[in-house]
Computed example of a mutant assay.
Amino acid sequence: MDNSYIIAIDFGTAYSGYAFSLEKIEAEIEPRLKYWGQQVALRTPKTPTCILFDEHGKFLSFGYEAQSAYFKTRGDEARKKFFFECFKMSLYGKKLNSDVTIEAANGRSMKALKVFTEALRHLKEDALKFISENAGGKQFIASDFTWVVTVPVIWDPSAKQFMREAATQAGIVTAGKEDRLVIALEAEAASVWCKKLPADGFETENNSRVTFEQASGTQYIVVDCG
């Protein structure tokens, strides 16, 4: 199996998703996306960063499915569930370790490492399943890929290490394969993409063959309006 295969997970504050490429790294990579939301009559490149656990802390669902299932429950049943949304920035400004907890919608707490691990595990398993279903019968496992997980620029080293640990526990990387996980800064990833766009405008449909990277003296600013 070609280890130049890539899956990149955008673990967002409000929405999350992934893109993948089965092309050679040296080639001009055109990433492919999974679209979400069919069960709620939508087709979006990301799904809400929501995760649902049962009253015993067992993972139930993620994204639109978690959001829909939780909002359909009422009263005591809803209060028993652990529902987390927009939880990524709960890591910001905290001194992180494996015992740090975050609060669910019902006011009960769960270890942050478990919440992030199960979210990444779901995205990993969904990506492998989706790619295998669309690869002409070829089956893939996590070690076939180099994985990229994006993190905010403002996160300190402990938060980045926390995400690496969550990715490891989620089975994205295994012992001896740590180099297959790349923690990428969101702004830097956006900037790399911008450099590949046409120099006379960011429209990808533009016919210009000259990119920002090739245009001498061109300047641009990346602004995250998330």
Rank of each mutant, 00 (worst) to 15 (best):
M1T: 13
M1A: 15
M1D: 12
Y5R: 07
Y5F: 14
A8V: 05
A8T: 06
F11W: 14
S16P: 08
A19Y: 07
A19M: 11
S21K: 05
S21F: 13
K24F: 14
K24M: 09
K24I: 08
A27F: 15
A27I: 05
P31V: 12
P31A: 14
R32Q: 13
L33H: 11
K34S: 12
G37W: 14
V40E: 10
V40S: 13
T44C: 11
P45T: 09
K46P: 04
F53P: 00
F53A: 00
F53V: 02
F53L: 03
D54S: 03
E55F: 08
E55Y: 12
E55W: 03
S61Q: 10
S61V: 02
Y64V: 02
Y64A: 04
Y64Q: 03
Y70H: 02
K72R: 15
D76L: 13
E77H: 05
E77A: 09
A78I: 01
R79L: 06
K80H: 05
F82W: 03
F82E: 00
C86W: 07
F87R: 00
F87A: 01
Y92V: 07
Y92R: 04
K94W: 05
D99K: 10
D99S: 12
D99L: 03
E103S: 07
E103P: 00
A105K: 00
G107E: 01
K111W: 00
K114W: 09
F116Y: 15
T117N: 08
R121N: 08
H122P: 02
K124M: 06
E125M: 08
L128W: 04
N134I: 04
N134H: 15
G137P: 01
A142F: 10
I154D: 07
W155D: 01
A166Y: 09
A166E: 01
A167N: 02
Q169E: 08
G171C: 03
I172S: 02
V173L: 01
V173I: 15
V173Q: 00
T174A: 13
G176Y: 06
K177A: 13
E178Y: 07
L181R: 01
E186G: 09
A187Q: 10
A189K: 03
W193Q: 09
K195G: 02
K195C: 12
F202Q: 07
N206I: 06
R209A: 14
F212G: 04
E213L: 14
E213H: 11
E213D: 11
A215F: 15
A215K: 15
D224M: 15
